[in-house]
């Protein structure tokens, strides 16, 4: 449903807000790379914006650390509907090698619902463009989506989030 809606509403211009949630930088740079002349994602109408309130899609990199989780949640809420969430890189997809260390939640979907997963460490710029196109329904899906079971973590995320309510997330 959401992808039908997105297809209709967003396919001509998708504005992305990119957030690093504990990534090593590798993925972030590849995300910027798709904007530069060789890949030039702007020809599809996609561009990076400076505030989640202007964005149609969240691009999440990194394995989501304890500190960043509440801010990410608030970011998700600040993005207007309909929205797509794109997890870029093995870290955001499943936590990578630090998926179970004490400070890491292990992937973006532990905190917010994710529409498209783009694995790779880092994924090639072509893969990122393909993933974004997939999210918009511009290219046909090759796999059926599967529901993942929620894995409970050892501490109370909502308690975090309550504490962070008063912290500003984005300021220009």
């Amino acid at each position: 449903m959401i992808s039908d809606l997105c297809k209709k509403m967003l396919s001509k211009s998708l504005w992305l807000f990119h957030t690093n949630c504990g990534a090593c930088n590798g993925c972030d740079i590849e995300v910027i790379d798709v904007l530069t002349p060789y890949y030039d994602v702007e020809r599809f109408g996609m561009k990076l914006v400076g505030s989640p309130r202007h964005a149609d899609a969240l691009v999440i990199t990194g394995s989501v650390s304890r500190q960043v989780a509440p801010a990410l949640k608030r970011l998700y809420e600040a993005t207007p509907d309909p929205k797509v969430v794109i997890a870029v890189g093995t870290c955001a997809v499943g936590g990578n090698i630090w998926f179970d260390t004490y400070n890491i939640l292990g992937g973006a979907d532990k905190v917010v619902p994710v529409t498209v997963y783009i694995p790779g460490c880092p994924p090639r710029p072509e893969a990122i463009i393909y993933g974004a196109a997939l999210a918009l329904g511009m290219v046909p899906k090759k796999v059926k989506p599967q529901r993942e079971q929620h894995v409970p973590r050892g501490f109370d995320l909502d308690a975090y989030i309550a504490r962070w309510q008063d912290t500003p997330v984005v300021t220009r």
Partner: peptide
């Protein structure tokens, strides 16, 4: 915000030849 417990992994879980592969993922550049 990006703390990933790399040192702890190196001190407790990994052997010499595994650490370089974790070490390289500390930074993407």
């Amino acid at each position: 915000y990006n703390h990933r417990a790399v040192e702890k992994l190196g001190d407790s879980e990994l052997n010499y030849n595994q650490v370089p592969f974790v070490a390289q993922q500390i930074c993407g550049i």
